[in-house]
């Protein structure tokens, strides 16, 4: 007894079904009309575009359901251009599908490798022409050409220098030093503890000596959020508690996850929320991460007041602010 099954026979190509437009002249006429109408719609779109450009004033706003109040000039420019391009494409496709020749053609694959005589002829030609160019007889050209071509490859390599220089210690340093005053951003006004009410916040930057300009690079590292809560609400170890002043606590505003500005402070829950990935920090516990992808707490800035009563930094940040980087893990 044999288990062999007869192999399937090649079913061949399915029978060619003619389109309606191929057999019925009335259907062909109808398809022709449809293609024509599509082209005319494109014409209408272009005319609408031209009219919107010249004829519709930029100050006209119209109300459309769902879209709301919209600028008519821009709306019809867009609609016109979209129609003019879309309907050309649609007409071309409809034309090809309904009226263009529909007979089936078989085109067998060719071998990719060139014939042997073509290959040897090519090698012979290269050798012959190289001899004619006389590179062997003119060593000066040969060497200078080699030098030129070799050096040209160097320039893109040189441009890789732009990936550097290495930041050295810059990522670990900010403009906060012991005794730097906290000034409002913007406004540059120094703050006294009495300026902040319980439940109040202030966005601050380090005070710069006159003449020194604050750049975005500085703001990206120095931004600090000052928050005042009731001192008894803190849940801090003695060291961190000594970094606060009468219920005022300062944190780096740069998220330890991806560096967004963490400043969504909820007065009721004492939570700080990062708008980018919803990392949530608990202000009463030194910005401990209580939700979200951030791996570590926001760096806390130790603050105190100076002899004139203004809030100052007691010490620079004791860790790098912002997200992790190559030399710094997520701990």
């Amino acid at each position: 007894m044999s288990n062999e099954i007869a192999p399937l026979t090649d079913p061949g190509l399915p029978e060619h079904i003619h389109r309606k437009a191929d057999v019925d002249p009335r259907a062909a006429k109808r398809a022709e009309r449809q293609v024509g109408i599509l082209f005319l719609l494109s014409v209408f779109g272009t005319l609408l575009f031209i009219y919107a450009y010249v004829g519709i004033d930029e100050s006209i706003f119209i109300f459309l359901p769902i879209m709301g109040t919209t600028n008519a000039h821009q709306l019809f420019l867009g609609l016109g251009l979209a129609m003019s391009l879309f309907f050309i494409g649609m007409a071309a496709v409809h034309w090809a599908k309904t009226l263009m020749p529909d007979h089936e053609v078989i085109d067998h694959r060719k071998e990719q490798r060139s014939k042997d005589e073509d290959r040897s002829a090519f090698v012979a030609t290269v050798k012959e022409r190289a001899g004619e160019a006389g590179l062997g007889r003119r060593p000066f050209i040969k060497r200078t050409m080699g030098l030129a071509l070799g050096l040209v490859g160097l320039s893109p390599i040189l441009l890789l220098r732009d990936l550097g220089p290495l930041p050295e210690n810059e990522l670990n340093e900010t403009n906060w030093k012991a005794g730097t005053r906290l000034v409002t951003d913007p406004g540059d006004r120094p703050l006294k503890p009495s300026d902040l009410e319980v439940g109040g916040v202030a966005q601050v930057q380090p005070e710069f000596p006159p003449g020194k300009e604050r750049h975005l690079d500085d703001i990206a590292k120095d931004s600090v959020l000052l928050i005042r809560i009731r001192p008894e609400e803190f849940n801090l170890d003695p060291e961190r508690l000594s970094w606060t002043y009468e219920g005022i606590i300062a944190f780096s505003k740069i998220c330890s996850h991806m560096g967004c500005a963490v400043a969504l402070y909820e007065q009721t829950t004492k939570h700080l929320l990062c708008p980018c990935h919803q990392s949530t920090f608990d202000v009463t516990r030194a910005a401990k991460v209580i939700f979200g992808p951030a791996a570590r707490a926001l760096p806390q800035l130790a603050i105190t007041v100076d002899s004139e009563g203004y809030i100052v930094a007691k010490a620079p940040f004791n860790e790098a602010v912002g997200p992790s980087f190559w030399e710094r893990d997520s701990k």
């Binding site: 406004g187 703050l191 916040v201």
Partner: peptide
């Protein structure tokens, strides 16, 4: 006044003019 979850922006942090 900092209603509900909103923090207070006192007159020294944001002056009346600001």
């Amino acid at each position: 006044t900092g209603p509900q979850a909103m923090p207070v922006f006192s007159d020294s942090v944001l002056t009346p003019q600001e």
